Simulated assay, not measured.
Amino acid sequence: MFANFEEKGKIFTQVVTKEPVDVVIQTPTSCIYGRVHVRPEDRLKDELDRTTAFLAVTQAKIFDREGKNLIYECAFVAVNVANIEWVLPQSELKQNQAGEQ
């Protein structure tokens, strides 16, 4: 589990590199815009499958269910995976005919 030990007893562990993916997460009570961090060789789905009970979301903006009224804004929120209805990468958002996202 531990990669290296220093002479003074410090323990060094392997750093896991991840890339941020901007997402929209729908729950029964809210719509969350934020970032999920995914390993470079994985897909967003792989990160969701790896997660046990909670999914870490950074730079989160939590809106009401319709996504219109901002309720909270925070640097980190842990989202209960059991309450996630769907997750959408923001890069996949398309504008509708009215010009809204």
Rank of each mutant, 00 (worst) to 15 (best):
T51M: 10
D46Q: 14
E6K: 13
G34L: 04
F12K: 15
E7L: 13
V15E: 12
T29P: 05
E92I: 02
V77M: 11
L93A: 04
G67L: 00
S30E: 14
I32W: 01
A60C: 01
G9A: 11
Q97P: 06
V36Y: 01
T27F: 02
A78K: 13
A3N: 07
K68Y: 09
A60G: 05
A53M: 05
V24M: 04
I25L: 06
K45A: 14
V36P: 01
Q101K: 07
F5D: 11
P40N: 02
G34V: 03
M1R: 11
V87F: 10
V57H: 01
L93F: 06
K94M: 06
V23N: 03
K18P: 00
G34Y: 00
P20H: 01
F2S: 15
T17A: 13
L70W: 05
A78F: 11
Q97F: 07
N80W: 06
V16N: 10
N80E: 14
V16F: 12
E7H: 10
D42I: 03
A60N: 03
A56W: 06
D42S: 13
E66R: 11
K45W: 09
A78M: 12
Q59A: 15
M1W: 10
G67Y: 00
E85M: 08
F54S: 12
L44D: 03
A78I: 04
T51Q: 10
E85L: 06
E19A: 07
N96Y: 02
K61N: 06
K10F: 13
D22G: 02
E85P: 02
I25W: 03
A3Y: 13
A75R: 13
K10C: 11
K68R: 07
D49E: 15
D22P: 01
